[in-house]
């Protein structure tokens, strides 16, 4: 997917570099992105999004769930991806559970609404 630049709301320019990899439509896609990323890249994303998380949440709270303008929705999807980066950074210190196999037999076939996805 190509994203018109800038793709995020004004004020969040420093997160722009993370949009192509981390803005995804479903819970399972975000999990796969984190599970297959390099730890350094996950850490860079984590540090950047955590630093702006509170402002990003306040920005998104202006809108109803599921009814955000595209730029704000992309920012919200970055916040959703932040949780997955946190699993790697805050729990494992690795992209996914130690000694786990990938590709994985596990799928999140239905995630929470909105942007949870359904397989």
């Amino acid at each position: 997917m190509t994203v018109a630049s800038p793709s995020l709301p004004p004020g969040f320019e420093e997160l722009e570099a993370f949009v192509p990899y981390w803005v995804l439509d479903s819970n399972d896609q975000r999990r796969a992105a984190r599970s297959t990323a390099e730890m350094d890249d996950i850490q860079r994303f984590y540090d950047a999004i955590v630093a702006r998380a509170e402002q990003a949440i306040v920005h998104c709270e202006q809108f109803k769930l599921g009814q955000m303008p595209p730029a704000s929705e992309r920012l919200f999807k970055l916040l959703l991806a932040m949780n997955h980066a946190a699993i790697a950074v805050e729990m494992h210190g690795a992209p996914r559970a130690h000694e786990s196999t990938w590709p994985s037999a596990v799928r999140i076939t239905q995630g929470p609404w909105p942007h949870g996805g359904r397989i």
């Binding site: 819970n27 975000r30 999990r31 949440i57 998104c60 709270e61 769930l65 919200f76 916040l79 959703l80 932040m82 949780n83 997955h84 946190a86 699993i87 729990m91 494992h92 996914r96 559970a97 596990v106 999140i108 995630g111 929470p112 609404w113 909105p114 949870g116």
Partner: peptide, 19 residues
Amino acid sequence: TMSIRHRLQLEHYACRWAE
């Protein structure tokens, strides 16, 4: 899902479970 923050919690909950 009740709010933006609650949605973030549910995402964390789902991905902890998947792990």
